[in-house]
């Protein structure tokens, strides 16, 4: 696998969406290619920061109270 081929599959690799054979070939390429490995490490870090940033909100107590009232109303019916 070339650098271009590995880069083209980068996000699928990081998202764990590649089939086992392609995933193994990407890993083999990364094992011998420092520039691609550095890029993969950075992209993995970037995606982790995105996850941390985008799904870290805690629902406020006021929302829970509204939802509890909703579910309670349905149960009463």
């Amino acid at each position: 696998m070339t650098c271009e081929e590995a880069v083209a599959r980068l996000y699928e690799y990081l998202d764990r969406e590649l089939d086992p054979g392609t995933r193994r070939r990407v890993r083999q390429h990364l094992a011998r290619c420092r520039p691609c490995t550095d890029k993969v490490h950075f992209e993995a870090y970037f995606l982790a920061q995105l996850r941390r940033c985008l799904v870290s909100e805690r629902a406020p107590a006021s929302l829970y109270r509204r939802l509890e009232a909703l579910v309670a109303a349905v149960r009463v019916k």
Partner: peptide
């Protein structure tokens, strides 16, 4: 799922009060 829905709703609506309404 409430926290996950609320997190995404905040990013979609850009407002916490509107996000609460959207989740509700």
């Amino acid at each position: 799922c409430v926290n996950a829905l609320y997190s995404v709703a905040v990013r979609l609506t850009r407002r916490r009060d509107t996000a609460e309404d959207l989740v509700q």
